[in-house]
Write a protein that binds this DNA or RNA. Structure first.
Lengths: 188, 188
DNA sequence: GTGCAATCTTGCCAGTGGCACGTTAGTCTT
DNA sequence: AAGACTAACGTGCCACTGGCAAGATTGCAC
């Protein structure tokens, strides 16, 4: 009706556009503050168009989480490939959290998305396998992986929510190297 | 008007009652899903009564976070007092996260509360001092404290959001001991 | 007792998520 | 090329939410 005559009825590439808008909105107001209507406004469509593509708000956040897990997996694989160093994988983990805060925030708040989503589970499993191994790995190695993941994940989250001492909050990657040096991983 | 004739107009102890109701609600629907109106309903008052005591929704969540930081500080101090062991303080940290999930969830989502609240900052500072020392501590010790806090915090959050391998998700406290054994803290 | 401040309620408003239903336009069949 | 089908979007509506303004109730100081 009063819709732009220039803009076509069919957006043509709406789903990724909504995803980008959602990430932008989350960066500004957080995952909880983000609203479907605001995201839709940014993409220039009605809010029900977003519902059509993602089912509901949790569905949209699930899609953001899936994208996040894939990006994180890629970043970790690239670090592993480049440095052949488990430490550098950990540093890459912290770097991802800092540079992809909106994704990271959503990824680790399962109350916000559909935990049983198939794509989400697959993306999570792939990332988890890189960090603490698959089901076949022995107990010692798995415990070491969990210890390493816990360390970098804790550091990343503490940095994100402002719980690090000011002396160490400036350069999170440097802090990651210092902190990771206190880990003892005999089977790595 | 249609209000219960039994219940007095003045509740007499409403603030703590609302806090308890908020914690219960958060336990069921998460911090984001909690609503002022639902909390007020549980306490048997109108939703503006809650606004009166806490200013706004963020104020209520801030109060929950303050209570959480105090409870956590007490729990860590008790563990330190009883076992004289830094490891047991870390185990107590994980135990707190598991047994006080509503508080823990709110505490580490600063987007949900008033970060500049004086009581909150004081409660946070007290807990932080127990974990990585005060401002006067030397750099090595501070880095060790941050490493230890990162490890247990990461383990706790990964457990809470279901990112631990199933082999280690059953007994979080036992996992905390195993994982913490990979930390090397020469100055502790 | 009377004034006053603290506590709680009612009424209202804009914003939100989700549903039912209508509209548009691309695609496929014949 | 005409029509049928369906994917992609919009409109209208509903209950719910947070927050504000204004009023009602009560305890308390004096």
């Amino acid at each position: 009706m009063t819709r732009d005559r220039d803009r076509p009825y069919h957006h043509g590439d709406l789903r990724p556009a909504l995803l980008r808008a959602a990430v932008d909105a989350i960066a500004e107001v957080g995952p909880a503050g983000m609203s479907m209507r605001e995201v839709a406004r940014r993409a220039g469509v009605s809010h029900t168009a977003a519902t059509y593509h993602f089912g509901d708000k949790a569905g949209l956040l699930t899609a953001v989480a899936v994208e996040g897990y894939r990006l994180l997996g890629d970043a970790l694989a690239a670090a592993e490939q480049e440095h052949q160093s488990f430490l550098e994988v950990g540093v890459a983990y912290v770097r991802f959290a800092v540079t992809h805060r909106p994704h990271f925030d959503v990824m680790f708040q399962p109350a916000l998305h559909h935990a049983d989503d198939a794509e989400l589970q697959a993306a999570k499993a792939r990332t988890a396998a890189m960090l603490y191994g698959t089901a076949e790995v022995d107990d010692r190695r798995r415990a070491e992986g969990v210890a390493a993941w816990s360390l970098v994940h804790g550091l990343a989250t503490l940095w994100l929510n402002g719980n690090l001492p000011p002396q160490l909050a400036g350069d999170p990657e440097a802090t990651a190297r210092v902190v990771a040096s206190h880990l003892r991983l005999p089977h790595r």
